[in-house]
Design a protein around this nucleic acid. Structure first.
Lengths: 151, 151
DNA sequence: ATCCATGCAAATAGTTTGCAAGACC
DNA sequence: GGTCTTGCAAACTATTTGCATGGAT
């Protein structure tokens, strides 16, 4: 869920920190910085994006620390991973209710929507045991449409 | 589309070979072998799967040849790529009509179905320019269900 | 003070590229 | 025979691991 308001960002950031703390992890400056980064992000971030952002505040940060924390946060369920066409990306998991996303091919920002195909489906073989599903719509968001048409 | 019958496999294999030939590519033994492999496959194959299969017939085959041909076939549209949880996979593109797939989490075989959520959707913001979509259902196929329940 | 997290370096996995020798048309 | 494809080696990218030091509780 996109958080455009300061208090939402702050509370998402706190949620992530709390989740880490509850698991017994130590709250280091880098981890606080990671939490803020994902709370503020409107789209997906690659490991390199995360590394570059963190380096602005912590010039000495190393790539392996970034990877370690991304993996830990993913395993905890705080972040979700997805492979977009240009590689592995992460974003803060939407905590609220089940929904899907529009994903902008240009800026990779996401827009949630409520329609879930599983509620309207017909034709799934009865003997297939469904575990999960994935539904995403790709295209261009209003801000990127003009740029996209000139390609 | 799954090809379980010998004549389907043969014709899919011929289609792939024809597509390569039409593009002016030379039909080498390795490429014929690749075509057969994907025509026979019921699920997704990783580059390593492909390499291992090809090595049985062509012990000297190299990894880079596998990658080169997988990339060329993907760019041609003969194969489609997908990132499953355990990495990059390939399969022969279903040539017929638009549909989606059930994907078995155990054996990665796929089952097509006709329902497309885009035909039933409501709630997409009008200012989002839709380009493509992705809808997959994950679970266990009949043959894998028993194994899965014991995990 | 204890133990976890970090940074560094090196290792590993996955994928791509340059080039000479061989295969296809 | 000319050119495309292959295999080998090496380069490159992305990611992971071992270990000593520094930091959080």
């Amino acid at each position: 869920m996109a958080n455009h308001h300061k208090q939402d960002i702050e509370s998402t950031m706190q949620d992530i920190v709390k989740a880490m703390s509850a698991k017994g992890w130590r709250i280091t400056d880098q981890r606080k910085s990671l939490a803020t980064l994902f709370a503020e992000a409107e789209g997906f971030l690659s490991p390199k994006d995360v590394y570059d952002s963190m380096r602005q505040q912590y010039p000495g940060v190393s790539f392996d620390t970034v990877y370690r924390n991304l993996r830990l946060l993913s395993e905890m369920g705080v972040l979700e991973q997805i492979y977009l066409n240009d590689g592995l990306k992460f974003r803060a998991r939407c905590g609220s209710h089940h929904h899907h996303h529009l994903i902008c091919l240009q800026c990779e920002k996401t827009v949630p929507f409520e329609f879930c195909p599983m509620l309207h489906m017909a034709g799934v073989p009865a003997d297939f045991q469904v575990v999960s599903h994935r539904f995403e719509i790709f295209g261009y968001c209003p801000s990127c449409e003009s740029t996209a048409s000139s390609e």
